[in-house]
Amino acid sequence: MLKSRLFWPILVLVIILAINLFVDPGFFKVEVKNGHLTGSLVDIVNRGAPLILISIGMTLVIATKGIDLGVGSVVAMSGAMAAMTIGQSMASDTSLTPLFIAIAAALGLSLAAGLWNGLLVSRIGIQPIVATLILMVAGRGIAQLITNGQITTIYYEPYSFIGGGYLLTIPFSVYLVAAVLAIALFMTKKTALGLFIQSVGSNPEASRLAGINSKNIILLVYVFSGFCAGVGGLILSSNVASADGNNAGLWFELDAILAVVIGGTSLMGGRFFLMGSVIGALIIQSLTTTIYSIGIPPETNLLVKAIVVIIVCLLQSSEFRQKVLRPRTRKPLKKEPENSSNEQEVKIS
């Protein structure tokens, strides 16, 4: 069943990668150089790591019928916090504080950001899109306050290991992604959390009456989303060895939402697919890579993504599918099974 869910996203990913093969016959070549695994595919995974992480967090938020627009800002905040605690020394072996404290401070701030979002949504009852919009705007301000409005370069060498280091020939960021994904999969498959998230997202009132503490579930997914964005921020700032309050993680929230939707999780909440989101994030990263590699001007990057977003949104609309797609082919209907329930509801009401 899982395989059929992932079929379409994987197909899209394969198509995008195949396009690259035409431009660059060596695209699929992966080799070990100086003990480092290198190649375009490795690059996509490595570069895509922050987005994959954020998409994992976003998946659980969207499964509760919510949305987290603050993740891009949290990426910037996390990087800024790490840069500040490490300090401005130009020497590559000097840090104000031990590395683990810098990491803890960055992740602590990210968790606090997630907690803030979660409290606004679950306790005060602000609509998720509005509640997280606050942090989307304010978070960049906070990040700039931390870095005094400067793009702060991080010279401390050990920090660059997070995003640029290799462990057993594999990029370290891949381990981070694998670890967070493993946590998410464990929590949602081996504990009842997955069931609770789906039930709260599908029918919050029925869940409350079944004795589920919906508020805490919702709080938790936002905190986890903040955590994922925080780890993403560490990787990103480590990779570029700087913290940029203005541009780090810019539009990541939209990319992450897109990744989740491509992965088969409906914005209506309920059923969610973590692996689908991971593939969705890889699709977006490949899309970006492809735009560069086949020589489309990079300025159009956002435009191409926007077009993909529009197509996905239209496919989610049952009205659109009925009007445009149904007369021609029924295949796309099978792709989005949750929409058949929408149609039923319309009939009944």
């Binding site: 009842a192 069931l195 609770f196 789906q198 039930s199 599908s202 029918n203 009132e205 029925a206 869940s207 009456l209 079944a210 004795g211 589920i212 503490n213 309920g270 059923r271 949750e338 329930s341």
Partner: peptide
Amino acid sequence: EGIISDLSIRENMILAVQG
């Protein structure tokens, strides 16, 4: 206020006990 329509019979049934 009763069924969680997206979930299966099994998931719907165990929800309160698991809760």
